[in-house]
Design a protein around this nucleic acid. Structure first.
Length: 466
RNA sequence: GGCGACGUAGCCAAGUGGUAAGGCAUGGCUCUGCAAAAGCCCUAUUCGCCGGUUCGAUUCCGGCCGUCGCCUCCA
């Protein structure tokens, strides 16, 4: 039984066969850091985090590289607007993004290369392409010679003519072919630049990924990922650059996540419907976002609006419900119930793996997890003790953990906790004296502060709302 | 116009050539002082539309309609 994954290059699911047995070399195109990252970036990072975590769960050693593009027109423009140093600006956003990744429980990559750290390697790569005639210098810039690359367009299913047809905004009219793209851009006076054999300049947009990937993972990798908006031209051009230099197939599997949809539209700054990760995390736990992402396939579009976010929160609460302790009066569940629970543990584990093996079908996997949730709750309602619930609960935690869910009960570190305990205790006494109005008032007002009280016959428990 | 993805209940969303997972929401019941939580039951004769293949299609093929993405910077 093997893992199958969808390969954009071939348009079908293929069994995962890595270059080196037991090792997956994986490269993900990270963000260009020039403004607050939005929830679409979070989706992409999280989808590949889920893939990475699952591969590790299945025993692979995953060498995972995600880059930061820290030199780019947009960064320079933004820095100019703010009178800031572009490198410093990029660094600030990298720090912010790293924090977001941590808050979203996205596992650290093996390495996080940046363009500015690999300038000399980039120059060497470009020089090699010039040397073998795949690139040419023009007015201090260097362009890739698309016409020499006979399989150009194979990833996005585009002929060279089709690739040309969309080309507008030709910067340099003297390019041999309008589809030729810049490997090295000559610097304008006063602009951030590095010395090169072609004069001062900076790397073009696509070359950095080719170089970073090759430097850190080698000529050939297993999985190359990114958003599906990168298929053309970015990934197409990466393939052209790398394969023209090495003469070997670049990535075995091209994996692309779908776009987040906002009210039926892609998030766009011009439409003004951008939601930053920061905004999201102010209101919700990272697990809520993960639940949202897990609920659908990574390749399809993902609806994002307040309703589905709230639904995700409710789904997360339901998972938590299964992790609650036994009832205070639990004396043990009937054998039939315990047997059903144990069978469910078995079945859930098998189904979970079968779903995830099938192109990382996280929505299916979650469905199976909820079957276990239900069975655990049924057992508790039938008097199962903590000991009887333990194995099932651990299994649930483990499998949810494979998908990157933290399931931390208390997500707000607060010095208010002793006082909340005190209120809950006092309220217990009020309840015993049947002072309902007052005890309801305490419950309501604590709820407004984000504290949820749940009463049972004998006592009360509380937790932070998520 | 070209390339690609998608269209499943009120909402989100899996899935299979043999008759529709899961979650949210809704309604009923059990429990509870009440509420919440949990459990049980109900909620798609039907999977955009029209043809074709088949004993049989939501699932395969063709056409149409619709949504979205890329073709310029984008996760």
């Amino acid at each position: 039984m093997a893992i199958e994954l969808y390969n954009t290059m071939t348009g079908q699911k293929e069994p995962l066969e890595t270059i080196e047995p037991g090792v997956v070399k994986m490269y993900l195109c990270g963000p260009t850091v020039y403004s607050d990252a939005h929830v679409g970036h979070a989706r992409s990072a999280m989808e590949f985090d889920i893939i990475r975590r699952y591969l590790e769960y299945r025993g692979y050693d995953v060498q995972f590289v995600m880059n930061y593009t820290d030199v780019d027109d947009k960064i320079i423009n933004r820095a100019n607007e703010e009178g800031a140093d572009p490198i410093k600006l990029a660094e600030w956003y990298i720090d912010q993004y790293s924090q977001h990744l941590a808050d979203l429980n996205i596992k650290s990559a093996t390495q996080y290369p940046r363009v500015t750290q690999l300038i000399s390697e980039i120059i060497a790569f470009i020089q090699a392409l010039v040397d073998n005639n795949y690139a040419y210098e023009l007015n201090g810039s260097v362009y890739f010679r698309v016409a020499k690359d006979d399989d150009y367009g194979k990833l996005s299913n585009r002929s060279l003519n089709e690739a040309r047809s969309g080309t507008r905004a030709i910067v340099d009219d003297d390019k041999e072919d309008e589809a030729d793209f810049a490997l090295w851009k000559a610097a304008k006076p006063g602009e951030l630049s590095w010395e090169s054999p072609w004069g001062p300049g900076r790397p073009g947009w696509h070359i950095e990924c080719s170089v970073m990937c090759r430097e850190l993972l080698g000529d050939q990798i297993d999985i190359h990922g990114g958003g599906n908006d990168l298929i053309f031209p970015h990934h197409e051009n990466e393939i052209a650059q790398t394969e023209s230099l090495t003469g070997k197939p670049f990535a075995r599997y091209w994996v692309h996540n779908g776009m987040l949809q906002l009210e039926g539209e892609k998030m766009s700054k011009s439409i003004g419907n951008v939601f930053s990760i920061h905004n999201f995390l102010e209101r919700y736990d990272g697990d809520v976002f993960r639940i949202l992402v897990l609920n659908s396939g990574y390749r399809g579009p993902l609806m994002y609006n307040i309703e589905v976010v709230e639904q995700s929160k409710a789904r997360l609460d339901r998972i938590f419900s299964a992790l609650k302790p036994a009832r205070p009066d639990a004396t043990g569940a009937p054998d039939t119930i315990l047997q059903a629970l144990n069978e469910q543990i078995e079945v859930t584990g098998e189904n979970f793996i079968a779903a995830m093996d099938d192109d990382f079908n996280s929505a299916g996997a979650m469905g199976h997890l909820f079957d276990l949730v239900k069975q655990i709750n049924t057992a508790r309602d039938n008097g199962a003790t903590d000991g009887e619930l333990k194995h099932a609960q651990m299994t649930l935690r483990e499998l949810a953990g494979v998908l990157g869910l933290r399931l931390q009960e208390s997500i707000i570190e607060s010095s208010a906790e002793p006082f909340i305990e005190l209120l809950v205790d006092i309220r217990q006494e009020l309840r015993q004296q049947k002072l309902w109005a007052l005890s309801d008032k305490i419950r309501d007002q604590l709820a407004e502060q984000g504290v949820v009280i749940e009463d049972s016959a004998g006592d009360s428990s509380w937790h932070w709302s998520r």
